[in-house]
Amino acid sequence: MKRLSEEFGFQHAGHATPLLADGSDAPHIERSYAAQELMDMRALTIRQPYADAIIWGGKRTENRVRALSAFHLGATVLIHAAKATHASEVSASDLGLDTAPGARGAIIGTAVLDACHQASAEGCCAPWGMLGFWHWTLRDVRSLPRPVEAAGRLGLWVPAEEVVRNVLAQSPEPRPVR
């Protein structure tokens, strides 16, 4: 079994390729390293139309009630569009996203968790940042050519192995998880 880093061309910090004394790969250990790489990948569920705003509309601030753990800073996450729409009932056209696909219940792109800070003043991270929330800032946002169906969850969550493989198979430039 190939490691995900070999299969999809990225490096994963902290995991060296295990070798036997004769210099060959250790298949049973190799599987555990590939499993670790998959377990390290996280997804973030965001309700529509804000998921589309991140991928296609330049939204680079996600408002959350909790701070982001320092462990996740610099990590690539999968952007998951929730099945439900946001309670504000804002539409994609309200955000100028008339041509956005509007997929729901699917991974629609990737982003890097760049920083996290608590909004300290009105206008912080305008126009997307909201006062009283933690701002998770994103960079290197990329869309997927085809959405990958997945059931979402609250907060950062671990997607199924098959979901990660389907995303990485179509990602133009897979990047390290951390």
Rank of each mutant, 00 (worst) to 15 (best):
A75F: 02
C125Q: 14
S91D: 12
S24C: 05
F133Y: 13
V65G: 06
A100F: 10
A126L: 11
N63L: 02
Q11H: 14
S143H: 02
G58H: 06
G96D: 11
A26F: 02
D98G: 05
E62A: 01
M41H: 15
L20I: 09
A103L: 01
A35M: 00
Q118G: 05
L38G: 01
A53R: 09
Q48P: 00
M39G: 04
G14M: 04
A84K: 15
L138Q: 08
Q36A: 13
G105N: 14
F10E: 13
A92S: 13
T137D: 08
A51D: 15
H135F: 01
A43C: 07
A67S: 04
W134D: 01
D22T: 07
W134C: 04
G123V: 00
G109E: 12
G74C: 10
P27V: 15
P27Q: 12
L19T: 11
A92Y: 06
P145E: 15
D40F: 06
D52T: 12
I55N: 12
R139I: 03
A100C: 02
G102V: 13
C116G: 06
A26C: 08
S143M: 03
A70K: 15
T61H: 05
L78H: 01
E149V: 09
L68W: 02
L138I: 06
A100V: 12
K59C: 11
A51N: 14
T110H: 11
R146C: 09
D140V: 06
L144G: 06
S69K: 11
L131E: 13
L73N: 06
G102W: 08
A43L: 10
L44C: 14
R42Y: 06
L44I: 08
L144M: 11
G74R: 06
A34Y: 07
P101W: 13
A35Y: 06
L131W: 03
H80Q: 07
A53V: 13
H12C: 01
Q118H: 11
F133L: 07
P27A: 09
G109Y: 09
C125P: 05
G23N: 02
G102N: 09
A75S: 13
L95D: 07
